[in-house]
Nucleic acid binder design. Structure first.
Lengths: 119, 119
DNA sequence: ATCAAGTGCTATAGTTTGTCAAGTGACTGA
DNA sequence: TCAGTCACTTGACAAACTATAGCACTTGAT
């Protein structure tokens, strides 16, 4: 890759965030720490293999912290580190955009249906 | 998919944005319209097959507009639609986050090396 | 006129990435 | 006792993405 001609943090960030499930994971963890399986369900059914890869990556990047409460029976929790918590802004921006544009695109005609929109 | 138990625009948005190259494409187009090949280069070398798929998807979603200026020689331009332009907020949020956290994460130990860090 | 390079794509292989299903070892509740 | 839970791991597979070539044509240099 000759993309190194100029280091760009935004490009880097996008590279991380565009990986499948990453933003879902961050969003889920924004509501508080979760265990491995709960997290997998919270993000909408990510398979354990991919989930582990993402989690390791995010942990390596310093975006989240993994805490082992007990080895056996296994009990672990994943929690956002400060750098991860700050992604709240990004998720919020996505949320604002989505409510403004996306549900109109996805479900045209349905705009009087208030559900769990708080976040 | 049983993810329909509850429609969530944020989830939808993330699904779109997490597709490889999508955010790069939006970011590139935020600076103005581009032709197919220029766009491919601007996003950092996306191959034409994937690029076309993304572009079609984004156009279908109403995020961008494709204008054919001439059939032969081929000349087309891709430009963000209003819904796409509004993603500026999201890209900005990513940019802010990246400058605050990511270059520290990516290059630990190097903090006395002022490069293109100014926004 | 001819050659090289460019336009916006498309087609076809080939590689990478993500998925599914099953299994591990100890525990919990019926 | 037996199914179900936890946090993963493994291996076979499918889906996604990539590289490369090529099309029909124009432009610019020679």
């Amino acid at each position: 890759m000759d993309a190194e001609r100029e280091y760009c943090p935004v490009h880097e960030a996008i590279q991380v965030l565009q990986e499948k499930w990453t933003m879902h994971i961050v969003r889920a963890l924004l509501d508080g720490p979760l265990g491995f399986n709960d997290l997998g369900r919270a993000v909408g059914g990510c398979n354990p293999a991919t989930l582990k890869v993402r989690l390791d990556h995010l942990e390596g990047l310093g975006l989240l912290r993994r805490t082992v409460h007990s080895q056996m029976p296994p009990r672990t929790s994943y929690e956002l580190a400060p750098a991860g918590v700050d992604l709240q802004r990004v998720i919020d921006a996505i949320g604002a955009w989505a409510r403004e544009h996306l549900d109109v695109v996805a479900v045209p005609g349905v705009d009087a249906e208030p559900r769990a929109a708080a976040g």
